[in-house]
Design a protein around this nucleic acid. Sequence first.
RNA 1: GCGAGUAUGGCGAAAUCGGCAGACGCAAGGGACUUAAAAUCCCUCGGGAGCGAUCCCAUAUCGGUUCAAGUCCGAUUACUCGCACCA
Length: 815
Amino acid sequence: MDMKSVEKKWQEKWEQAGMHRFDRKDLDKKFYVLEMFSYPSAAKLHLGHWYNYAPADSYARFKRMQGYAVFQPMGFDAFGLPAENYAIKTGVHPKDSTEQNIANMEQTLREMGASFDWSAEVKTCDPSYYKWTQWMFLQLYKHNLAYRKEALVNWCPSCETVLANEQVVNGLCERCKSPVSRRNMTQWFFRITDYAEELLKGLDKIDWPEKTKQMQRNWIGKSTGCEIIFNADNADKDEIRVFTTRCDTVFGVNYVVLAPEHPLLRKLTTEENREAVEAYIEYAAKANDIDRLSTSREKTGVFTGSYAINPVNGKRIPVYTADYVLYSYGTGAVMAVSAHDERDFEFAKKYNLPVTQVIKAKKGETVLPYTENGVLINSGKFDGLYGEEAREAIAAYLTEIGKGSKKINYRLRDWSVSRQRYWGAPIPVIYCPDCGAVPVPEEDLPVELPYDVEFRPTGKSPLASHEGFMNCKCPRCGKAARRDPDTLDTFVCSSWYYLRYPDAHNEKAPFDGKIIDKMLPVDTYVGGAEHACMHLLYARFLTKALRDMGYIHFDEPFKRLVHQGVILGPDGSRMSKTKGNVISPDDYVKEYGADTFRLYLMFAFSYTEGGPWSDDGIKSISKFMDRIERIVEKIAAMPETNGTDAKNGSDEKELEYARHYAIKQVTKDFEGFSFNTAVARLMELTNALYKYDGQAEKDGALMKIVADDLVKLLAPAAPAFCEELWQKLGHTDDYSIFQTAYPVCDEKKLVRDETEYAVQINSRIKCKMMIAQGLSQDEIRAAVCENEEIKPLLEGKTVKKCIVVPGRLVNLIVG
RNA sequence: GCGAGUAUGGCGAAAUCGGCAGACGCAAGGGACUUAAAAUCCCUCGGGAGCGAUCCCAUAUCGGUUCAAGUCCGAUUACUCGCACCA
């Protein structure tokens, strides 16, 4: 078959008929299949796009044939650094390159033969979209979920912008890999931490890969403990609050440590220690820049000269500062228990501080530092208590004396969303000398991104030097004011796009809540695992925030999540231009066609695993398709009965069995994204059809039925090819195979008269035998014992036990 | 260091709730058709022993539970991913 022209022909037909357009009158049968939208890159679709989109589209087509009203949209995550970096390098404006790239990618996505509903396309860089991204910001602001504060932020010196914690990988910028430093800047934040607990709990209710859920759990990092107040031994009795998960060790506190950024640090530093402490603060700030990475880094710190009082035993203990304590976690201060914490122990050894044991192992020797649960000693009235019980008792005591209470801490930080870059959605805030930060009124949205901007980085936001953009009037008092020169993190744009698709052309609102409540959640979301702690977490946060504002009424955006695996280069490492191991799908599509290439991708890999690329089998897939085409053509030309009446013989039953077995398995495999086995089952059915065709007498009508089903089962995976075969089979009145019903398995056809059993004696296989359907266990046992191969082996022995696994095996235990 | 995951022929991979390991395919070898090639069709194909029917070994390694283990339990090794001074 000439795949090129066949694909083109059908792609045009589908488009003309609007077959993939979702019709709102089908809302009650909706099935929302979504693939993560892509960044519009300069090149055409790469293998990763193909591997994500093509099989996922087959899944969507499968659901459509099952009778669902499938909604499968596509769009572009079009703002972001690469377009801007490209612009800096080449001078081509990000808007121009992005639009060009989008046009190219739309073209190849269409050639892929995927059934996207292009009428719902969204592009995040389009003012009609980012108007509503800005609207989201305003709603979060209105509900106190967006706030501005000066904060130590991650700064990429090469991209000259702030990065979110999620975008810092091993201390390096996620994009350009340069070391990230820290800076104090005034930034906008989203209060994602307000949702920490719900984001954690919600994971139990969704059908996501366990690994991804685990990653989110770790990222949120819940820990249960206690906050304890240590009063400084000074005139003000300043309260040093520490967080600990081990309040059972509180009698063993040897010193207290403040993070170098802690606000109390300078106050608690005595004059004779000031010089050393100031030097240390500076050292820590710099060290943060260079190697926060290394955990084996030696602990350092200095004494402040002050002391604090342990609230449980009144002991006077020194206050230190050390950068092994992080200001951003907990309270930024810790109580150091040298005997029962590895870090404190190391620090104490280095600076010759005392080590006080207050826990001993339940049995055996206690080697310090001992960090496990244990029995309390040297802890006054709490001596003898163990582990959790001890923590409960001490927490209760601290509460009683007003020096602490139970506390839950999360590792998750608020989401920093300001970016000092040009190519993004402007932050809709105006700064008035009198009124301060004033949100742009909703009716003034969008705050449009001007085109004529010098986007080469200067360390300041490019928009800051665009006077036409910056100057405006304060919406509150009308005085001259300035706009926020920063743009929003692109993850803000992508945190709500799945809500826009179903109502993509709404000009009055981001979406109509009534429609969204019916269309969402996304039934199946397909995309890469690399977004586990970023996009997938942000989207969940935004969904919950919008729900609490009353705009939507569901808790989770993505009911089921599937990650495709990664296709590596032929050498087994990640594809990259520098390694020169990049495989281009285009060459294969040109040679074999898009359907063939898609079918190969589905067959050659376990979808969720991926693996190194090899094209060893692509020819065989092409042959497999030829093989189907030949038998289809033969059957189409066959007279219905071939001059005989060979009906309902054992060969016909076998063929029926093969047909229904394939229906059952392929259905199950598609549902489970196990495409490789689904294709294998279709190969088996094809083989069965050939085998039957080899008979002298055959039932042409039956073969036609089987061929119809075979083509239908294959259709989601090779759509244009199967449309063509469907016509060859004589279905010219039906418009499209995708408007026919997916085959349904008839379980009765899977019941065979006889089944092959494996017969074991003492768990060793001795022979195989056919056993009729419906025999009782005793009858099976009797039949097996009479088997001519088994009987001699039982001579002179007694059968002590007989295990029958219906339809599988019989195991005789003899002695 | 902590957490999660993976490990099956020459290769890609299958294997329901613990029930015939290697489905399906690639590569390889042999054969048919052909003047020849391509295409197509048929056979063999985890390892070892034997003329043979058969027998033994085999799912990273070691041990356990079970009539029965790729699958469950414990330990070990290797690789992948995530987190990484989180108190």
